[in-house]
Design a protein around this nucleic acid. Structure first.
Length: 336
DNA sequence: AATGCGGGGTG
DNA sequence: CACCCAGCATT
């Protein structure tokens, strides 16, 4: 598997399979796949279902669909693009995979930067800037590392050597520094921080907020909705009536006081819905109740609409989730 | 910028 | 057994 002779079809298949997937998981699939689809032409000519069947068990099945679309594109254009930009324009091929194919199949002097390479580079140069912000910097340093190695003029060998090192020695949690050929020049090892790198931006600690929303259904299949104010979060969208969203969870009796038609309905908990906004996460408890006839509602409590018309309204994805949870619970309930 | 997409490995 | 992993497409 060295140098400029690797078949781009083989490289492409293996790189797609190796996205988010370990080598040991890929190997049997890879061989079986190439037996079944020996060339890109044979792949493009096969039924999609055959391709999906060959992929079954590997996960991330959009990879298989993109692979199939991509095979058609490649055959139509008469072969693989031989540069990063052309490769990246193909479905399922992003920045990493485009660089990997270019380097390994075509000897283009680029360094494909995957998680392994990011980890190795962050450690060798002790780069403490967290990912993903440091991605560009790590890519530049990977190029610099390439220039300092014996394999500098063999992009394919350099890339594959880095993958091997990252997969077997410079592993995420417990790097095997005693086995590492670069231990003496590794800045992170020298500082004793190799296991802490690469750093990652702490996932923005979003405060969690809580609310309770209500799905009230009458015998005619009507429900109560209300419109949010035009300004602010989810402005102008339609929602199930509910409590304000606050930091503390709502004890149900307290929430029921704010339910449409008041607390005197047979409310029960249908489930919870979690939704992440940019600046906080929301946990919604969805409560449902069936009534024979709709109570009279104050205008601010909402309006009555047949449930089947709800999906035509401006429901946010949060409220679609809540409505779905509520309707599902009602559907499972023996009609009283 | 954040999320969903699968399955396998790890602590 | 909950958590973690980290390319690409989509939103």
């Amino acid at each position: 598997m060295s140098g400029q002779t690797a078949d781009p079809y083989h490289v492409w298949i293996s790189e797609i399979m190796l996205q988010q997937t370990t080598v040991t998981a890929v190997v049997p699939y890879y061989h079986a796949f190439l037996m079944r689809f020996p060339t890109v032409e044979r792949l493009a000519a096969a039924p999609l279902d055959d391709v999906l069947a060959a992929w079954a068990g590997l996960g991330y099945y959009s990879r298989a669909r993109n692979l199939y679309r991509c095979a058609g594109d490649i055959v139509r254009r008469g072969g693989f693009p031989r540069d990063v930009e052309g490769l990246q324009s193909l479905p399922g091929i992003g920045p990493y995979t485009a660089s990997a194919i270019a380097a390994i199949a075509f000897g283009v002097p680029v360094v494909p930067v995957d998680g392994n390479v990011e980890r190795i580079v962050a450690r060798v140069f002790a780069i403490e800037e967290p990912l993903p912000g440091a991605r560009r910097k790590l890519g530049r340093e990977a190029l610099r590392l390439n220039g300092e190695t014996e394999a500098r003029n063999r992009p394919s060998d350099f890339a594959q050597a880095l993958f091997d090192l990252g997969a077997t020695v410079c592993v995420p949690r417990t790097p095997q520094c005693l086995l590492c050929p670069w231990v003496v020049s590794c800045a992170a090892h020298k500082a004793g921080i190799q296991a802490q790198l690469p750093a990652k931006t702490p996932k923005a600690a979003r405060p969690e907020r809580h609310g309770v929303h209500f799905l009230l259904v009458d015998e005619a299949g009507q429900i109560v909705l209300r419109r949010r104010p035009d300004k602010g979060l989810l402005g102008g969208t339609v929602e199930l009536p509910g409590t304000p969203w606050r930091d503390a969870p709502w004890p149900l009796p307290e929430a029921f006081e704010l339910a449409p038609g008041g607390p005197r309905h047979p409310w029960r908990v249908a489930g919870t819905v979690r939704h992440v906004f940019s600046h906080f996460a929301l946990m919604v408890t969805v409560c449902v109740a069936r009534v024979r006839t709709m109570p009279n509602l104050l205008p601010e409590e909402g309006f009555v609409v047949p449930a089947v018309q709800a999906e035509g309204l401006a429901l946010s994805s949060l409220m679609r989730k809540c409505l779905g949870t509520g309707l599902e619970a009602l559907g499972n309930e023996p009609t009283a």
